[in-house]
Design a protein around this nucleic acid. Structure first.
Lengths: 150, 150
DNA sequence: GTAACTGCAAAATATTTGCATCCTT
DNA sequence: AAGGATGCAAATATTTTGCAGTTAC
């Protein structure tokens, strides 16, 4: 968990962005959605259901979080990141993502020790040539090992 | 699910290999371990717990399968493949894998439609340069979309 | 006012643990 | 014979579903 400080201007801008994103996806603006979206924006890594549950201080029902995440995935606001353990993690999509179509092609690093997920933005995922008949929708590179803090 | 036919010579060779692998890992040779290892050798994709359970016709207890898979992972016989849904899948390690150290660097393709996992052996995973302090242990490339049968 | 969202209860799934019994070596 | 492996029962954990009450627009 990390604590991040923002000055008011940025807070306000962020709040506006969040509202914008929800509106664009034709979702009603509710407390839980704003809060969860805000969490994603503050964390530059990926979040699991449990992270969100604890970060919000059990303010929202577990089921609401499940449903909110599912809705966000369907609307192309967030996407799941493959992990080798069975924890599902989510990260914000880039603007290019549209409903049902994710084009998020940066490398994710998962620390075996502390479990943190990092998005290594500046590393570009190379093109993969698939055999005939295979149609690619998404590609992820998952590197695991020990992070710089462990 | 696929049906595969082997002539006796190959069956015998496979049986021998399986025993070898178990011996090398200092594991006792039991029915469930042989059967599960055989399943991995016959499938050239990856298997989930549920696949194994149904392929063996519920011959073995669910718990035994969990424990066998866990043991195999610890011994470096199989490894987990990251997936975006929460299903954990396993695939045979290459010989270079040693206990606790996996070097399996081919691309996996997961079909969003039928759920099958393919190992695209002939596509090499490119090297990824990590920022300082990050130590890489494993790297996976997960491509998802529609497979040639769907 | 209406449709959509949330919370609670409960069902359905998935995974782990303890222990007695059985099997491999 | 001894240690490890298995099966069963049960405890946990995770995710999904139904429904009634509440909120956003």
């Amino acid at each position: 968990m990390q604590t991040v400080f923002f000055d008011d201007t940025i807070e306000l801008k962020m709040e506006k962005d969040i509202t914008e994103i929800l509106k664009r996806s034709q979702l009603s603006i509710t407390g839980s959605r704003k809060k969860i979206l805000e969490l994603f924006q503050k964390s530059n890594g990926a979040l699991a259901h449990a992270d969100i549950e604890s970060s919000t201080g059990e303010q929202y029902d577990r089921v609401t979080i499940y449903r909110t995440l599912q809705t966000f995935v369907e609307k192309g606001i967030i996407h799941t990141i493959p992990t080798a353990d069975n924890s599902v993690r989510y990260a914000l999509c880039k603007d290019e993502c549209t409903e049902g179509h994710h084009h998020d092609n940066h490398v994710h690093f998962i620390c075996d020790n502390c479990g943190a997920t990092y998005c290594l933005e500046n590393i570009i995922v190379p093109e993969v040539k698939l055999p005939g008949g295979f149609i690619q929708k998404q590609a992820d590179v998952i590197v695991s090992g020990t992070c710089d803090k462990c």
